[in-house]
Lab assay of single mutants.
Amino acid sequence: PEDLERKVRELQKNGVSPEQIEKILRRDGVDEREVQELVKKVS
C-alpha cells in the first residue's frame, strides 16, 4: 500500500537500516512478501 511505502521511505530517510525496517514491518503485521517488496524498493 501507498502509506506503507511512504513509511518505509521516511524510516530510510531517518537512517534506519533495511534490516530494522524489515523488523518494524513484520512487527506491524505486514505480510512477508510485502515486506520483501518494500525493502527492495528502498535498498
Score class of each variant (00 low, 15 high):
35 V>K: 01
2 E>V: 12
30 V>K: 02
19 E>Y: 06
9 R>N: 03
18 P>G: 05
18 P>A: 11
29 G>A: 02
11 L>S: 00
12 Q>T: 12
36 Q>I: 10
17 S>W: 03
21 I>M: 04
41 K>F: 06
2 E>C: 14
24 I>Q: 04
22 E>Q: 08
43 S>A: 12
16 V>K: 09
2 E>T: 13
43 S>Q: 12
24 I>N: 01
35 V>R: 02
23 K>A: 14
9 R>H: 05
19 E>N: 06
31 D>I: 04
3 D>H: 09
26 R>F: 05
40 K>E: 10
33 R>D: 10
20 Q>D: 14
18 P>Y: 13
33 R>S: 10
13 K>Q: 10
3 D>A: 12
3 D>T: 11
2 E>I: 12
33 R>Q: 09
27 R>P: 01
26 R>L: 13
5 E>Q: 09
35 V>S: 02
38 L>K: 01
37 E>W: 08
16 V>P: 00
38 L>I: 13
18 P>F: 14
7 K>Y: 14
36 Q>V: 08
38 L>W: 12
9 R>M: 07
41 K>I: 11
32 E>G: 05
14 N>S: 11
29 G>W: 02
14 N>E: 08
29 G>Y: 02
26 R>G: 03
20 Q>M: 12
4 L>Y: 06
20 Q>R: 05
10 E>V: 10
18 P>S: 09
1 P>L: 13
20 Q>I: 09
39 V>Q: 03
30 V>N: 03
43 S>E: 09
32 E>F: 07
27 R>V: 05
40 K>G: 10
8 V>P: 00
14 N>Q: 13
19 E>I: 07
30 V>M: 09
17 S>H: 06
29 G>P: 01
27 R>A: 14
42 V>S: 05
34 E>I: 15
33 R>A: 13
37 E>Y: 08
15 G>W: 02
43 S>R: 14
32 E>L: 07
37 E>D: 09
1 P>E: 10
17 S>Q: 05
7 K>F: 13
27 R>N: 10
18 P>E: 05
3 D>S: 11
37 E>V: 06
16 V>G: 01
18 P>N: 11
11 L>D: 00
8 V>I: 10
42 V>C: 09
10 E>W: 15
9 R>K: 07
39 V>A: 03
6 R>E: 09
31 D>H: 06
6 R>W: 11
35 V>H: 01
28 D>W: 15
35 V>P: 01
23 K>S: 11
22 E>A: 14
20 Q>K: 05
16 V>D: 02
8 V>A: 04
31 D>L: 06
7 K>I: 09
42 V>K: 03
21 I>F: 01
28 D>L: 15
36 Q>T: 06
13 K>D: 05
33 R>I: 08
11 L>T: 00
37 E>P: 01
12 Q>P: 00
1 P>K: 14
40 K>D: 08
11 L>V: 00
1 P>G: 12
12 Q>V: 15
11 L>P: 00
15 G>F: 02
17 S>T: 11
40 K>L: 08
6 R>V: 07
31 D>G: 09
26 R>V: 11
9 R>F: 07
17 S>N: 04
22 E>Y: 12
37 E>C: 09
40 K>F: 08
12 Q>Y: 15
22 E>T: 12
19 E>A: 11
42 V>M: 13
4 L>C: 04
20 Q>T: 08
5 E>Y: 14
31 D>W: 04
18 P>M: 15
2 E>F: 13
32 E>N: 04
15 G>Y: 02
8 V>F: 06
34 E>K: 14
3 D>K: 07
18 P>H: 07
26 R>A: 07
13 K>Y: 07
7 K>L: 12
42 V>R: 03
